[in-house]
Amino acid sequence: MNSVSDSQHWLQSLIKAAIGGDVLTEEGGGFVAVMAQSNPHIRQDIPSAFEMYTLLDHFLSSSTISVLPRDEVIADLAPSILVDQKAERVIALISIPQMQLELIAFWLSEGLRSQTVKNMPGILAMPFSIEVRDGVQHLIPEWFAAFYVDGNPEHCVPILALKSVTCDDRFGDWVSIALERMHHFNLPCTLASDAVKKATQSSHKPSGYANS
């Protein structure tokens, strides 16, 4: 992209293509229309996917559009839209005031169990991938998001955005998989990953191990 304006228009066109069409008649449209033609579990994720698209579209006009770091973890979680077209990645970082997460991102907030966390201020990170099919680019929301309490990179809370993935046995421990996937987007999650690894190792210790 040659300019911020080019990036904005490019993303807007991808969003329009993804949510266009009629999901009831299954005519036209992109990814959302594909979801509408899928099984009931995937169709139940349409509100969350649509919300991710519309939030990205809404904040495109008011957020700084920057280049997503290629080989380093995102150090500054300031509200912005991060784009890496070559690596086919997009991240929306959205500022969430206290007690506002459920008002701004209702469907995504359903993926958080803790009401205490939902009430906290922070940064909501929504990752998207760009897939090319038959020479056409498609903007696809990832099945997870992340909430950084108080905007602190060390306080990462994964969010299950598209719940239908749990129907796949490979996603039994979706939190661990989400944290691994976050590395692809250079999202900070080291402390959360370490905590999950320690908990997993502890659960695999044989009975009586602590007393040996």
Rank of each mutant, 00 (worst) to 15 (best):
G122P: 02
L187Y: 03
L82I: 08
D169F: 08
R113A: 09
S114N: 12
E88Y: 09
V23H: 08
D168T: 05
W10C: 08
G21C: 07
T116P: 04
L82Y: 01
I81N: 00
N211K: 13
R89H: 07
D6I: 09
H183A: 14
E110S: 10
S38F: 08
V83Y: 02
W10L: 13
V32S: 03
V132R: 14
D71H: 10
V175L: 06
L179T: 03
I94K: 01
L112R: 01
I15H: 00
V165M: 03
V23R: 09
M52C: 13
E180Y: 04
H155I: 05
I123D: 00
A145D: 06
F171M: 09
L179D: 00
I81F: 00
V149W: 03
A75V: 11
V196Q: 13
W107N: 11
D168W: 02
D76N: 15
V136F: 07
I15E: 02
V4R: 12
E142I: 04
A105Q: 02
S95E: 14
E27T: 15
N152H: 07
S7F: 05
W107V: 04
I74A: 03
T166V: 15
W174F: 08
V157E: 09
P40N: 04
P188R: 02
D6G: 08
V175W: 01
I74D: 00
A75D: 11
Q115D: 15
D169W: 07
G29L: 05
K86D: 11
S80M: 07
L14N: 05
S5W: 08
G111H: 04
A125C: 13
M120G: 04
R181K: 14
T190G: 05
I140T: 11
F144G: 00
F31A: 02
A105G: 05
G21R: 04
L108F: 05
T190L: 12
K16H: 13
M126L: 15
K16D: 14
W143Y: 13
E110M: 11
D6Q: 15
C167M: 14
L77N: 01
Y209S: 14
A49I: 08
D194S: 12
S38A: 15
S48H: 07
T116L: 14
V175K: 10
A92W: 00
E72F: 06
A33R: 03
L160A: 05
M182Y: 05
V4N: 10
R43V: 09
I91N: 04
W107D: 09
P97N: 07
S38N: 14
S5N: 13
K198S: 12
A17T: 14
I81D: 00
A36E: 02
A146W: 01
E88S: 15
T54R: 12
D194I: 12
I159W: 00
H138K: 09
E154W: 04
S5G: 05
N186S: 13
H58D: 14
A192Y: 00
A36V: 08
S109I: 02
